[in-house]
Every structure is written in structure tokens, then in C-alpha cells.
Design a protein around this nucleic acid. Sequence first.
DNA 1: CGTAGCTTTGATTGTTTTCAACACATGTGG
DNA 2: CCACATGTGTTGAAAACAATCAAAGCTACG
Lengths: 260, 260
Amino acid sequence: MGHDREKAMTSHSEPLSLFLKRLLLRSELDEAEQQAILGLRAHLQEVPAGADIVIPGDCVEYSCLVATGLIGRFEVMSDGQRQIVSLYLSGDMCDLQSVVLPVAGWGLEAISASTVLKVPHADLRRLAADFPSLAMAFWRDTAVDACILAKSATIVRRKDAMCRLAHLICEMTLRSEMVGITREKIAIFEASQARLADILGLTPVHVNRTLADLRKAGAIEGAGRSFAIADWNTLVSIAEFDPIYLVTGTPEERLLDRAG
Amino acid sequence: MGHDREKAMTSHSEPLSLFLKRLLLRSELDEAEQQAILGLRAHLQEVPAGADIVIPGDCVEYSCLVATGLIGRFEVMSDGQRQIVSLYLSGDMCDLQSVVLPVAGWGLEAISASTVLKVPHADLRRLAADFPSLAMAFWRDTAVDACILAKSATIVRRKDAMCRLAHLICEMTLRSEMVGITREKIAIFEASQARLADILGLTPVHVNRTLADLRKAGAIEGAGRSFAIADWNTLVSIAEFDPIYLVTGTPEERLLDRAG
DNA sequence: CGTAGCTTTGATTGTTTTCAACACATGTGG
DNA sequence: CCACATGTGTTGAAAACAATCAAAGCTACG
């Protein structure tokens, strides 16, 4: 593994505040709880595109907070084929569930060149034990992940390739914008077609044809390696995209943690 | 809804102890925590096969503990078609994640005639706040659910109908045995082919043909409405079934909650 | 009986995979 | 600079898989 270039940094404030921002989207946290998140210690690691961060079967002792780039959680079939089941971008704590299930049946890989903060499980567990609201926030974060997974599981069973691909683009665009990434820099547009195939559960050949179909429909534009959104409304209508499952949440819901 | 026949019962010890048993499979709980679970108050409800318990979009204030029967969590497509994404059997707290995400984008329906205990979210939240280990146990339970979902999402994308159906039978058989249900009484065997289609993301017609193929292969037996396992090993090999994702867990892992 | 729901079977259509080949860019060593 | 390998994108043809449409048989139940 040539990419184990780790640095023990003292200031990780930027990615940690992105993570805090993400938690605050769906959970209400007081000053002490917010400071506890921002005070987490972590190791910064740079990961080149395509590299594995966690191998299936590893027992991990940390979660990975994505600072920049795009990380995928994948499962490996008996024939060695990969299926990427979840995607994580800046501010996402990928594999937060590994805090409660440290023996992973899955792996983590970098879809594009990324930097991640490795946050020790022990620290996250202590936070969850000391601050019940943080325990709820972590649990909620895992649940939102599961909602996204359920959505993609539904679509993959019932919709054709064009709808699936359009839906993926819509979801990643919206999620990127939620953390302040501009539409031009959305990581999914830089993934190879083979990687898109791993995500969508299609063959690379069919991803290629489907991209061509989306271009023909006027939803996306740009030839070759990269593409961009040409018409958001067309894309949304092809995808039948309804963002409700991303659970941006309302203040009333967030207050429930403290209602007891 | 003719099935709103609720009874406020004083003793729900049996299903609650099944739920506790399920939690103890993966989490270490002390005497006080165990008593807290067993002391939960709840309303018993009987639900006929096919009835909806939660409609998508409802804001629910309780989780449903399955006492007997089989419950499915489903999403509805734009064309009204249902996709069942998770299955819950005796001892499972279905929709435990709704404690942290009360506005459901999904629904719950009874696959077979069932009895459920409605447990108020407020009580579960109080338990999570009072006992950090219970908060971790609930979180872990949600994470295991997500693992099962990830597994089925992987298989549905990469394997054909025969493998998927065999895998479903294997999984439900094993999960049933984990809570002490005998192989003859496994609920999935009583589901209609239309229901199996909703679960697997296939058409009822194709489920029928695939069941016939499994019979031909000698994996299952019995004509018409119901079937049974004829040869477990054949079934496992068709399904390429590896139960590791069910996370039965080891004692060492369970101790981590208290390591802090 | 007769109906309603479920199962079974057949024929046809559509989507996706598979296999195969070629184009195109990038990077390397000669 | 060229030859060459490698990875990625593109295109075509054939085959596999599942959906769709249609019809008939079976069961349970009133």
C-alpha cells in the first residue's frame, strides 16, 4: 500500500466543522456537544483514486471522515466483482456504523483522489456515552444512510438503467450542494464509466450506452471522460427524483431528542 | 381499517423477552438495562395478512415489535408499485430507526397475519438517554438492519432471480432459527407469490417460474401455495449464501460498548 | 355453485449482458 | 521521435434474462 502517508495534524477544523454541519442538518446539538465534535482528534490521510482504504473482513478501529473527494463503500461478490452500496462526500463520516459493528463485511475505496480524517472509534464511543444527544445524532446519521440505501435498492429493482443513472446524478448533485460544493466540481462527474457501473450495478458497456441516451435526451452534455448537467429539469423528470428520502429534516423533528 | 383492535395489556413479557434476546445477540447489557427493556409498556395489536400498519408519509410515534407473523417495510414507486425493502419477524423491532427519523417515507405492512406490540418512541428515547449502552444497542440494531439491506441490494444487482430467491429463503430460514422458530413454521413459505415478487423486485409470473426452477433443481419441494426446503445444501449453493452479514457477533465485539 | 384470488403456462417483447472489436489518450522505454 | 502497452471510451451483434400480455386451472369460501 503506497498510500499510507499519514500526518498527525493538530488542526482538522475544516472537515470536522463540515461533519458538525451535517449533523446539525438533522439533529439539535448544544454548545458543549458541538465543541466535543470539533475537538475530535484524527489523522489526516491522502488517498489516490482507486485505492482501497478498508479491505472487506478488516476489523477497523476508526471511522473515516471525508475531507475532500469521493469514497465508496463496497461489497465483493463471490466472483470478485464489486458492488458499491454507498457513496460519501465531503463532511460525511463514512462507515459511522462501524462504531457499533467494527468487523466489516464490506470495504471502503476512493472513487476519486481523496483526503480522509481517521477518527478513532473509541473517541466516538466516549462522545456517545457522555452526550446522549450525540448518541442519537450518530444513530440518526446511520439511519439516514440506510434511507438512501433503501431508496437505491428500490430504484434498482424497479427502474431501468436510464432512470437509475439520472437518479444517481440528481442525488449526488443535491448532496454536494447541501455541503456547499459547486455544481461544476461534483465528484461523480469525474468517475470512470467502470466505476459508475460498480455503483449502479450495470456493465460498463451499458453505462456507456446509457450516458449516450442521456445526452441524446438533452439531460447531460460533454463527450468523453467528463460530462455536465445540461438540463436539470429533464434529468429530474427522467429520474423521477423526489429528494424527500434525503431527510433534510425540520426543526420540530430535531427537537424530539430532548422531549424524552 | 378494520384491524385497529388494540388491547392495553399488562403483560407483554414474551415478545419483549424475544426482543431482549435479539439485542443480547449483538450487545452486552447489564441487569438494569435488561429490566428496562422488559418493562417497556406497549399496546398489542392484531393485524390480518395484507393490512397496512403504517402508511408512507405518516409521522409515527411508536415502533412495532413483532410478536408473531411477518412484517415488511415497503416503499411505493411513482406508479403505485410496492417494493418491500426489509422483513421483520418475531422479536424484531421493526422500524426502530423511526425513533430517530419519525417522519417515514416508507410504510409497514403485514405479509402474513401478525400480532405486533406498539412501543412508544418517547419510552425508547428515554431508555436511550438513561442507559448509554441501550442507545448503542439500538444504534447497532439499526446498523444490522442496514447490513441486511446492503446485502440484498448487492445481490439484486448482480445475481439472477434463482439466486435471489434462494438467498431470501436461506436468510429467512436462518433468521427464524436464530429466534427459535422451527423450520416448518417459517413465515416466508406462506407468503403469496405476489408478495414474494414485491420483496424480490420481480414480477409474480417470474417468481412462479423461478419457484418451479428451484423445485426442478431439488432445492425445495411441495406444490401450490406452500413449499418447504428439500435440500439445504443445494439451496445454499444456489444462493451462494454466506451468513456473515447477519452479524451474530462475538463476545469480544460486544464488550466494546463499555471500553469507551 | 359461483366468485375472487392465486397459481400455472405460453407467446412475445424489451432490456441488459456478454463477447468482440476498434478508437483514443496517456505514459514508458528504446 | 517512435513503438508499445495500458486504460478508457465507443460501437456492433448475439444471447440471456425478465417483463408483459393473455388465458386457463385451481382453491377457498361464501
